[in-house]
Simulated assay, not measured.
Amino acid sequence: MTMQTRKLGSTGPQVSALGLGCMGMSGVYGEADRPEAVATVHAALEAGVTLLDTGDFYAMGHNEMLLGEALRAAPAHLRDNALLSVKFGAQRDPGGGWLGVDGRPASVKNFAAYSLQRLGVEALDVYRLSRLDPDVPIEETVGAIAELVEKGWVRHIGLSEVGAETIRRAAATAPIADLQIEYALLSRGPEREILPTLRELGIAVTAYGVLSRGLISDHITADRSFAANDFRSSSPRFQGDNLKHNVGLVASLRRIADGKGATVAQIAIAWVLGRGDDIVPLIGARTRERLSEALGALDVVLDAADLAAIEEAVPAGAVAGERYAPAQMALLDSER
């Protein structure tokens, strides 16, 4: 297949229309298979996926080291095409507990130094603070990344989960390529104010949570339980009556998918792809099988009748439960 491409804003790089989100390869959704994860990264590169997304705090550096291993083992022509989007700033204790966010300029440079080493690259293609540090003005954090750009250690500046006001302040400080934010059929909050602001400023979106952490799939049932080390065990959308309600929404979507000869996951990905050429969905595939399914969304064409049926089946605001637990929601500048 020939991979479609999209540009990350007016100042960012040209990337594949779908990106690979690597977080799940480090145990966030239960135990992960390292050899299969490496094979999945290679399969994505072979399919033309160039954008690989990670975070230095995903399993305390594990994800960056895994991705670095996968890149070293990839053929040179594929490795050279890879573009790395890296988040930083989240602080964890040895048990994985949350300690807050650090966006201080000195910390920005320190985090970057470790990421460059773990990934085994000379520069990070897109670098972004994972969550806004309430104690550090965004201008100081973005300004520090801009200094890394000047020195050649970072190529482009991104943002993550921030609101319209913060986006404007960041863009007034330095060129911003994209905002990473959850955007999906079940998470449409960015449509109100954030997307219009981004489009006014020429900033793209890398959308994560496109399948709502596997909820929009053929693998989650109303009675599903999750292991304690699975993020979904504490996610409001996967609890009790919320899960039953949300599985019902997916069942309505499945009827549309069946009519298109597609899976519900492919319909959900195609829907996000169709929301604008400035949006790049990140697919959190942990296996080659799931990757292959996601790539199939590129062949799904949704016409006006399909979009109307999807809107009727899953209207904006229909989901039950917030996308994070209350303590995590409180950290999101994008939700203020």
Rank of each mutant, 00 (worst) to 15 (best):
R232G: 11
P326G: 06
L298D: 04
R255H: 10
G240S: 15
V38Y: 09
N81W: 00
L307S: 03
I203S: 01
E36A: 14
L124Q: 03
G48W: 00
P94H: 04
V142W: 05
L52E: 00
H77L: 00
A257S: 14
D102C: 11
E335C: 09
G209E: 02
V108K: 08
A251I: 01
V154R: 07
E69H: 13
L67A: 08
V49I: 15
D56S: 06
L201D: 00
L201S: 02
R237P: 00
P190Q: 10
L67D: 10
V250E: 09
I283Q: 03
L119P: 12
R168D: 02
T263M: 09
L8N: 07
R323E: 01
A39K: 12
I181Q: 01
Q266M: 10
I138R: 10
E335S: 09
G152E: 08
L201R: 14
L249A: 11
D133F: 04
A327F: 13
A44C: 08
G284I: 00
T166I: 03
F226H: 06
Y208F: 15
L8E: 02
A320W: 03
G152Y: 12
P75D: 07
L45G: 07
A172C: 03
H77I: 00
V49M: 09
S16F: 08
K7I: 11
I283N: 02
A316H: 12
E46T: 13
R168S: 11
D278Y: 14
V264G: 01
T141D: 01
M60A: 15
P326M: 02
L119H: 06
K109I: 03
H219W: 10
V205W: 06
T2H: 11
A73Q: 15
A171H: 13
G21D: 09
D93K: 10
H62D: 14
L129C: 03
V41H: 07
G259R: 05
M25Y: 12
D333V: 07
S10Y: 02
I138K: 05
D218N: 13
A82V: 05
L18A: 03
H77W: 03
N246P: 03
E335D: 13
K109D: 08
P137Q: 07
W98M: 05
D258A: 13
D135Q: 14
Q328D: 14
S115T: 05
F57P: 04
E46P: 01
T287D: 10
H42S: 08
L291M: 08
V126I: 15
L186C: 13
G27M: 09
P190K: 12
G261H: 11
G19S: 08
L148C: 12
I256P: 11
S334R: 08
R168K: 14
S217L: 06
N242M: 06
R232P: 04
P236L: 05
G9D: 00
G100N: 10
S235A: 15
